[in-house]
Design a protein around this nucleic acid. Sequence first.
DNA 1: ATGGACCTATAGATAACCGATAGGAGAGCG
DNA 2: CGCTCTCCTATCGGTTATCTATAGGTCCAT
Lengths: 110, 110
Amino acid sequence: MKPRPTDLVPGTLDMLILKTLSLQPLHGLGISRRMEQVTGGTFAVKPGSLFPALHRMEGEGWIAGSWGKSENNRRAKFYELTKAGRRRLGEEKRNWAQALEAITQILEAT
Amino acid sequence: MKPRPTDLVPGTLDMLILKTLSLQPLHGLGISRRMEQVTGGTFAVKPGSLFPALHRMEGEGWIAGSWGKSENNRRAKFYELTKAGRRRLGEEKRNWAQALEAITQILEAT
DNA sequence: ATGGACCTATAGATAACCGATAGGAGAGCG
DNA sequence: CGCTCTCCTATCGGTTATCTATAGGTCCAT
């Protein structure tokens, strides 16, 4: 029985996208596939969540997109992290670590 | 410099309340104070988030409330976990663990 | 040239949380 | 008794983020 796809934890999508892009520039569906691969298939970002997030973050100046060709020679928009995006990723990771600690403390309370 | 209050990670509130109530029945503000205490003050649930959640979960049959007197002899509604609530808490913890693993994998990818 | 896979994109609905605010009820004090 | 303070519950409106569903364009293979 294979694990069924996990839903997103709301509020973490930006961080996960930024982190994924920090390793290499990717186009939209490439990001989604990379995440799915890294998590062994348990995790999927749907297009309807992904693209609005990309547009929003491009508007914020955290990522920059440029049109190119995908591996399969299709028209695709490649995104890469900007300097501001790198800074933002750092902030989000700190916030996440802090929230995670609080949640863990509550879950492990006796 | 004490850590400023962490915001809630959306989607985890039910689980945190259920977990807190699984240790002992508490009234609304008691839940909030208990969480704040356990996390060393970094975490606070605001009334505007807490009470709607309590009512919703009571409607779902996960918790049961009964009127009583607080430590200070004030009118207070004490909530305790039902059997269904215990089951629900188990599910939420499993989902959380699964989501957490996926997020960690992405954050630690190289 | 036709069907299918790939990639981007938007719209509508829903759910959850926050900030602000209100108000009742007991306690302590003069 | 009457006043005020604190405790506790409660609701409203707004914002934000994600999901489902859908659409459209483009390249490739047959």
